[in-house]
């Protein structure tokens, strides 16, 4: 009898030890999620707290599913995410490879490389907004002074250029995250396969293509998973540079959600939008984790 009790107590121990962690997770993650899910089923307005108790079913969801402005912002966010992540990866890889080659001053360069990450996105937004000002901005003035153009290029207004300008600011700010993570991968890379490849007569491109890059891909996918969550939440930078305009040309999910939730105080509808947008984040995270597992399997690592 005593033995059975002791066994049960031993069996319970892991669960009891996990209880504080589970309770904390429930409190800080599950509870807000359930609360925001509930608000998305109500006409909740911040300025009218009583609306929190009016259940309206899926009305908010039906409304946003039929709202083309929302879907445009949704698709634009996917496009922005795809372009920004790929460019950041390509540039980050290039920078990491170059810094890896340096033997003197590498630490200093690594620190300098992290400078853009130290600025708040709001400051970066203001900086690029003024750089790209069509009339008094540095970019247009430089182009005109160099005789490359005689017109004022509307960087933040033109349908294509506006998204390009925002992407450029985003890339400037965040490429170093990729560079740092990929550099860490390069540092961790064993020398043996590289030397073996050289002995076998592989050229530099073949070494890079078949050894270095596959080894780095797990690092790249981790960076992409993290960055995809960041970029999908892009708000400050875009809010400062264009605030989704003009005429919705640079509207992303979170500029739209913040406007509906705070300016208009319609938190119920904003939460419905936010719930749909989390699908996007889940899809991207799932995709990158699948790629990560595949890349590790390719390298013969543990799954």
């Amino acid at each position: 009898m005593i033995r059975a009790l002791t066994t049960r107590r031993t069996e319970m121990a892991p669960f009891l030890l996990l209880l504080p962690a589970v309770a904390t997770m429930l409190f800080v993650v599950a509870l807000p999620l359930i609360f925001s899910l509930w608000t998305s089923l109500t006409p909740y307005k911040l300025t009218k707290p009583n609306t929190l108790y009016d259940f309206i079913g899926l009305t908010n969801y039906v409304r946003i599913f039929g709202d083309w402005d929302f879907w445009e912002a949704f698709l634009r966010t996917i496009g922005f995410l795809t372009v920004a992540l790929n460019v950041e990866f390509a540039l980050g890889l290039g920078i990491a490879l170059l810094i890896n080659k340096i033997t003197w001053g590498q630490r200093g360069l690594r620190t300098i490389m992290m400078f853009p990450m130290m600025f708040s996105p709001i400051l970066v937004g203001f900086q690029f907004k003024f750089l790209f000002n069509d009339h008094i901005g540095v970019v247009n003035n430089a182009l005109q002074s160099l005789g490359l153009t005689n017109r004022a290029i509307p960087w933040l207004v033109d349908a294509k250029l506006a998204m390009f300008s925002i992407t450029l600011a985003e890339v400037w700010m965040s490429t170093s995250i990729f560079a740092i993570l990929l550099l860490a991968g390069l540092f961790a890379m064993p020398r043996d396969p590289l030397e073996a490849a050289k002995v076998d007569g592989c050229n530099a491109w073949q070494v890079f293509r078949h050894i270095t890059l596959p080894f780095l891909m797990p690092f790249a996918y981790i960076a992409m998973a993290i960055r995809s969550l960041d970029v999908a939440r892009a708000y400050d930078l875009v809010a400062v540079m264009t605030d989704g305009g003009p005429a919705g040309r640079t509207e992303l999910l979170w500029t739209l959600i913040a406007r509906v939730g705070y300016d208009e105080a319609k938190m119920g509808q904003a939460n419905a939008m936010a719930y749909v947008s989390t699908i996007l984040s889940i899809l991207f995270t799932w995709y990158f984790y699948r790629k990560l597992v595949a890349a590790r399997r390719y390298m013969g690592g543990a799954e």
């Binding site: 000002n133 069509d134 009339h135 008094i136 509307p154 960087w155 933040l156 207004v157 305009g245």
Partner: peptide, 21 residues
């Protein structure tokens, strides 16, 4: 008007007039 006006707010117009152009 400058081509960028759809993106202008108060600081842009103030600085713009102050720039003399």
């Amino acid at each position: 008007v400058p081509a960028g006006v759809p993106n202008y707010t108060w600081d842009d117009t103030g600085l713009g007039f102050g720039s003399g152009s």
